[in-house]
Design a protein around this nucleic acid. Structure first.
Lengths: 123, 123
DNA sequence: CATACATACAACCATATGGTTGTATGTATG
DNA sequence: CATACATACAACCATATGGTTGTATGTATG
């Protein structure tokens, strides 16, 4: 069961992330305590529009809905997130690999160099 | 000159990458030696379609065209690429930051739960 | 110079996308 | 039970997207 990553899958993940509202919903879903109407209050659009954005994230597997009374609480989907990260990592791999020594250029370019602690290396 | 990253910019970068043909063109542009019609031969679509994809990458600043005789050679745009990488890195920052300790879950996640060593179950 | 090739771009088309309002249904709660 | 709230979903709309063919123009080359 090696998560086979098709082009369609990559398309889907990038497309899902290509909308600011959805990115915001996704980050809030990490706390996993808001229902759809609670989310909807945060954005200048109708409940139905937000509902659709959540549906896109759900279809893409980035988010789940769990029933809680009359609400559906939106939270990140661990499985899906890992998968999406694999997609982005994979892309970055190729990205960096093909760029090769172009990489130094990319890093030297404008500085100051980011002080990212580079916490842990995974997978 | 601090590359200000707007939501629109992030939208644009993700959207540009949400198409398999464009991702492929982008990676070939890293070699920087193909004209548009040469690229077009690689894909099952018309020259004009490929031309449009190149235009999207160019508008997003991921790719440049440099004249070479009657050809326009497509190559990656260093500036734009760095910017795009900042976008993706920034997103990953937020991503990883907010996920926090959920992180272990992401890496441990799919091991079968139930084979936890019995000896840990003491009372 | 005539011709072929590479590109640019307009016009068009079908479908996807991001939004809307309206209606139905499930769940709490006074 | 009546009402309010949360959600689901259909129908609709405007615009964006990804493709097509056709025409014009710039550049090499026999």
């Amino acid at each position: 069961m090696e998560a086979v990553i098709t082009d369609e899958r990559v398309d889907e993940v990038f497309a899902a992330l290509a909308d600011a509202t959805r990115r915001d919903i996704l980050s809030r879903a990490m706390d996993g305590d808001l229902g759809i109407s609670e989310l909807a209050e945060l954005y200048p659009m109708s409940f139905a529009a937000v509902q659709k954005h959540v549906a896109v994230l759900e279809r893409t597997g980035l988010v789940q809905k769990r029933p809680d009374g009359r609400r559906r609480v939106v939270s990140t989907d661990i499985e899906g997130l890992r998968d999406a990260r694999v997609v982005l990592d994979h892309f970055e791999q190729l990205w960096r690999h093909r760029v090769g020594r172009m990489h130094e250029l990319l890093d030297e370019g404008d500085l100051p160099h980011d002080n990212r602690p580079d916490q842990e290396r995974y997978r």
